[in-house]
Simulated assay, not measured.
Amino acid sequence: MANWSDPRVNAAPAATRAGVADAAFDAGLRSYMLSVYNYMASGVLLTGIVALLFAESGLAAQLFVTPLRWLIVLAPLAFVMVLSFGINKLSTTAAQGLFWAFAGVMGLSMSSLFLAYTGSSIAITFFATATAFAALSLWGYTTKKDLSGFGTFLIMGVVGLLVASLLNIFFKSPALNLAISAIGVLLFAGLTAYDTQKIKSMYFYVAGTDFAGKSVVMGALTLYLDFINMFTFLLQFMGDRR
């Protein structure tokens, strides 16, 4: 009798090991993305609570008519810069702490919305944004289409939007303001799907490394900024001014 081994006998354990490895990877990816969403949602909730309490206290109305308003408005940018450019030097705990501090300071900045818009219109716009964000992020997570090609276009669009917004401070054009709001909603809607796919892809590189925890924080920060910007631009359409 010939001395040979059936390749199916050796292949079966290998296939089983591969299946187990794939299942473990999928479970790790789900846990990773769930952590990103939990941080992001918790940050948005903290921002909303701080904004509401600060506005209701009357302090927002007092401070936003003084030069201190610029400190409140620009402070969140400082946290974003530190996290974005210093993440490699920060520990995971420090990155998490800075994220929560950023979300709180952002709440102080966004308290001005409660002074400009009615509470009901803010609530309606928030839930509309949350619904759109969930749908777009889910699509970005599940689609097989590679969205990386849209990244440069979307980022260039945001830069152009920022320039137009600065110019409109001087021109004060209602038509330009409306156009900026419409384009802003579309750009950050696209970025929500694009960033979700990018964050998902990042797991392939950080899984099992010390950077995984910090990657969760940065992913949450990215989606948080997409959500807040989409909400702010949409509020200019749906919001009822006081």
Rank of each mutant, 00 (worst) to 15 (best):
M1S: 15
M1R: 07
M1F: 13
W4D: 12
W4H: 09
S5N: 14
D6W: 13
P7T: 13
P7L: 09
V9A: 15
P13I: 08
R17V: 07
R17E: 11
G19Q: 07
A21M: 06
D22V: 10
F25I: 06
A27H: 15
A27I: 14
R30T: 12
R30A: 14
Y32I: 03
Y32T: 02
Y37R: 05
Y39N: 04
G48Q: 04
F54G: 05
A55G: 04
S57A: 11
G58H: 04
L59C: 07
L63S: 01
I72Y: 10
V73N: 15
P76F: 13
L77V: 15
N88C: 01
N88P: 09
Q96G: 14
G97Y: 11
G97S: 09
L98G: 03
W100Q: 11
A101C: 05
V105I: 10
L108F: 10
S111N: 02
L113A: 08
A116T: 09
Y117L: 01
G119N: 02
G119S: 06
G119R: 05
S121W: 01
I122P: 00
I124F: 12
F126T: 12
F127G: 10
T129H: 12
A130D: 10
A130K: 14
A130H: 14
A132V: 15
L136D: 07
Y141A: 11
Y141C: 05
T143Y: 15
K145V: 15
K145P: 00
K145H: 11
D146R: 05
D146S: 07
L154K: 11
I155L: 09
M156T: 14
G157A: 08
V158S: 08
N168F: 00
K172Y: 10
S173Q: 06
S173F: 05
A175W: 02
A175I: 11
N177H: 01
L178H: 08
A179G: 05
A179I: 06
A179E: 03
A182D: 01
A182W: 04
G184R: 11
L186S: 13
L186F: 13
L187C: 13
F188L: 04
F188S: 06
G190A: 07
D195R: 07
D195E: 14
K198C: 04
F204T: 10
A212N: 04
K214R: 13
K214C: 07
V216G: 00
V217A: 02
M218F: 09
G219H: 07
A220C: 08
L223D: 05
L223G: 08
I228R: 02
M230K: 00
F231Y: 10
F231C: 06
T232L: 13
F233K: 09
F233S: 08
L234F: 00
G239S: 13
G239Y: 13
R241E: 09
R241N: 03
R242W: 14
